[in-house]
Design a protein around this nucleic acid. Structure first.
Lengths: 109, 109
DNA sequence: ATAAGCTACCTTGTTATACCAGTTTCTAGG
DNA sequence: CCTAGAAACTGGTATAACAAGGTAGCTTAT
């Protein structure tokens, strides 16, 4: 039980929330997302992100369009669906509830 | 991807934090913990709690003493160790960082 | 033209954690 | 003795993240 594993475990399930949040702000592709997550200090590797994006796509929460790039290979630009927006509202609430729960426990010192 | 699974996934890893927090307040046994978690709306089943307690014990973060009960079989009362207290400080910080990260992402709407 | 290098996407295998659905052990009461 | 209930525990399954790769398209330098 070391601190870095703890961080990983605490982040579990929150990544989906973060990604959906980022995509909801407008068209982005994988590298954009990694940059944003890194800026927020939620370090994520590609091997985590791609399967997650596929899960979101399969669930109908996001969709993507291939777009050419001027500096390299084409990119998959993701956008959120209506269903995704609805789900994001649920995730927002779940996150709020979670904060409340932890708050409740830690305040009892 | 349904809401209840999302809740489970978001909670993952936070349970350890909560349990350690609860034990740090004083001697408790499993049912006490479940009661406290339930009160905080962090629903947990026994099959999750017992392996977690064993992990914490093996890691030296908590210890326990058997105590007799007047109403049934003996109970394992858990207490936090010095090492556990140190680790709890780390977990506190990790949680604060996590809130900051999510805050950073969700505030950019 | 071709090799090198970068960018972008994807996959496979491993690990950790939680859940479900049980089982075992101990105590008290009929 | 047998049942009920409390308390601890276990085995199998699902999910998600990571590590460490691989593949394909595009650009640039020789």
């Amino acid at each position: 039980m070391n601190a870095s594993n703890t961080q990983i475990q605490m982040r579990k399930g929150l990544l989906e929330f973060c990604i959906l949040q980022i995509i909801s702000r407008g068209e982005v592709y994988a590298s954009d997302m990694i940059d944003e997550l890194t800026a927020a200090k939620m370090i994520v590797v590609e091997g985590t992100l791609y399967p997650l994006l596929n899960r979101l796509k399969k669930s109908g929460l996001v969709s993507y369009q291939w777009k050419e790039s001027e500096t390299g290979p084409p990119r998959k630009y993701y956008t959120i669906t209506e269903e995704g927006k609805d789900f994001l509202v649920t995730l927002d609430q779940t996150w709020e509830d979670l904060i409340q729960s932890i708050q409740f426990i830690t305040s009892k010192r």
